[in-house]
Amino acid sequence: MLYAIANEQSGDVRAREALLDRAMGPLRKRKSSEVIRRGRLPAEGLAFVARSLSGALIGTVRLWHVDAGGRPALLLGPLAVAPEAKGTGIGSALMLHAIEAAERLGHQAILLVGDAPYYERFGFELAPAALSMPGPFARERFLALTFKPEALDGAAGVLRPTGAKISRASAALALAA
């Protein structure tokens, strides 16, 4: 399948939400990661989509600013690929693109909740034991990638959102697009 990765645009909101619903199901908004993302904007320059040659949105990934127990970090997610495009390498391409962009922009650590066997190939390993997510989460799925070995040294506590808040007006405008 041929596709292109680009920065997410405000007009992508409806297609992105529809893709997430199809790929992740109706319970996706109950995840602990969603608590951190709710009401926030993704980190500047770190929201990406994959489009088919026809222009259809077939993949998405975003990164969010968080306080990781006193250390600045990013929370990655959700990463999603349209069901009809699974197994084509789009998810891996989005991951690599997001990781490279985060490192290029000077970020030092990325955290996520996901399947370790999938994310280990990108360099993720178990997050520091002293860190946790808000609400229930599976410890073995809480992973970290650091660009500097000391990036999460001393990090302890529950992840907190630190990114810019989204205004109701801008949310309504994005949904109207």
Rank of each mutant, 00 (worst) to 15 (best):
G25V: 03
R37A: 08
G11N: 11
L143D: 13
A127I: 05
G11L: 04
I90T: 12
L53F: 07
R30P: 00
S33R: 03
V13L: 14
A176C: 10
G25N: 06
Y118K: 02
K31A: 15
Y3W: 15
G91L: 02
A15W: 02
E34C: 04
D21F: 09
D153C: 03
P26I: 02
E150G: 08
G77L: 05
A23T: 00
P136R: 10
A176L: 08
V61P: 01
A73I: 00
A43Q: 12
E103F: 08
A116G: 03
V13P: 01
E103T: 02
G87F: 12
L2D: 15
L143T: 12
V113T: 13
Q108W: 04
A176M: 09
Y3N: 02
L53R: 10
A129T: 13
V61T: 10
G55H: 09
F137Q: 01
R22K: 14
I5C: 07
G154I: 01
I99R: 08
S52R: 12
L79R: 08
R104A: 15
G89K: 03
G114S: 05
L75I: 08
G11K: 05
A6S: 11
E44A: 10
L126H: 15
A82L: 01
S170Y: 10
G77R: 05
S167G: 15
G45T: 00
V61I: 15
P134Q: 08
R141N: 09
P117I: 07
G114D: 03
K86D: 02
L94E: 05
A169V: 14
A155W: 03
R62G: 06
A85C: 06
L76C: 11
A6K: 04
V35P: 00
L145W: 13
E150S: 13
T146M: 05
L143N: 14
S132R: 14
S32R: 03
A68R: 02
K29N: 08
V81E: 09
A172T: 11
T146L: 01
E120S: 15
V35H: 10
R71Y: 11
I36G: 04
A4S: 14
S92P: 00
A169K: 13
A56P: 00
L94P: 06
